[in-house]
């Protein structure tokens, strides 16, 4: 039994927490409202509008019809999915091998990986490497870039460490080879670990914009975040929707820039909002497993 909590102190804490939560959500909610506001009311819509006047989904329909937005969504999905598959396969292979305590050279390999957490060549050598490998302006540049993240590798090692050794021994006696043990035994019993690391990688790929911005030159390959950044920074409707569309006065050209931005922000966070509730508990666990800062 804890001290009874019903004094003024307790209530002010509850209210303070509520205010914190509102401050966290409000900026997103406000964008949602603006994105749903009808075109007749959009001019008045601003930071304190709480309800969308003249509710409409028109903005979303027209924003998704802008070619570079539609491409951006598809590119982001492709890069995230392809990147994730590669990340998970290789990170779990590395984590599985390095959890084996008596592996000859284990500490050498671990040291080699830890060094990369505290020192890096930097942006310009990375760029030159991409150029030498002829990966510039290919999807591979953003998919393969730092394909195995040392932090996530170590998080996954801690999960794999908890797999009962007897399980692995039994499989070895049954004649399973190591690859089969990893994919048929270790991964299936480490669902929480795989989920955690997948989500870290997934969020990383989905939110990635900088490397895409410098490695990709072809607009048709830009992921959504690059498209979003272009709009938020350049903030010019004509250049964003294309001057031809602008002059022809297409549906997208009729939209207010505020509404386009708001809709694009919301579109870009939908996948995160959809997965977020399911993964919350996994994320929290992963955060605790990895005592090192990301």
């Amino acid at each position: 039994m804890r001290a009874k909590r019903n004094g003024i102190g307790h209530y002010s804490i509850i209210i303070l927490l509520l205010i914190t939560a509102i401050v966290m959500v409000y900026p997103l909610y406000n964008q949602l409202v603006i994105s749903l506001t009808g075109s007749d009311y959009i001019v008045e819509a601003n930071g304190t509008t709480l309800v969308p006047h003249g509710f409409t989904l028109n903005t979303y329909r027209n924003v998704l019809a802008i070619p570079k937005v539609a491409r951006g969504v598809l590119n982001s999905i492709f890069i995230t999915a392809a990147g994730l598959v590669i990340n998970i396969i290789f990170t779990s292979m590395g984590a599985y091998v390095l959890t084996k305590r008596n592996l000859y050279g284990r500490s050498f390999f671990i040291t080699m990986i830890v060094i990369t957490m505290i020192f890096e060549g930097g942006l310009i050598p990375d760029y030159f490497l991409m150029r030498r490998l002829h990966l510039l302006n290919t999807y591979w540049s953003v998919i393969l870039y730092k394909a195995v993240n040392p932090y996530y590798l170590i998080i996954l090692m801690r999960f794999f460490d908890q797999v009962p050794p007897s399980l692995i021994e039994a499989a070895r006696i049954d004649g399973y080879n190591e690859t089969k043990i990893l994919f048929k035994i270790v991964i299936p019993v480490s669902v929480a670990g795989i989920a955690t690391v997948s989500l870290f990688y997934g969020v990383f790929h989905w939110n990635e914009y900088f490397r895409a911005m410098i490695y990709l030159t072809d607009e048709g390959k830009f992921p959504l975040q690059v498209v979003l950044r272009e709009l938020l920074i350049s903030a010019e409707k004509a250049s964003f929707i294309g001057s031809m569309n602008y002059l022809k006065g297409t549906a997208a050209a009729q939209l207010d820039i505020k509404a386009i931005k708001a809709a694009l922000i919301i579109i870009s966070i939908i996948p995160i909002l959809v997965f977020y509730p399911f993964v919350l508990k996994f994320f929290v666990k992963g955060r605790l497993q990895g005592s090192v800062k990301e």
Partner: peptide
């Protein structure tokens, strides 16, 4: 991805 850029 890490050691070649360090050398670079």
């Amino acid at each position: 991805w890490h050691y070649i850029p360090m050398w670079g």
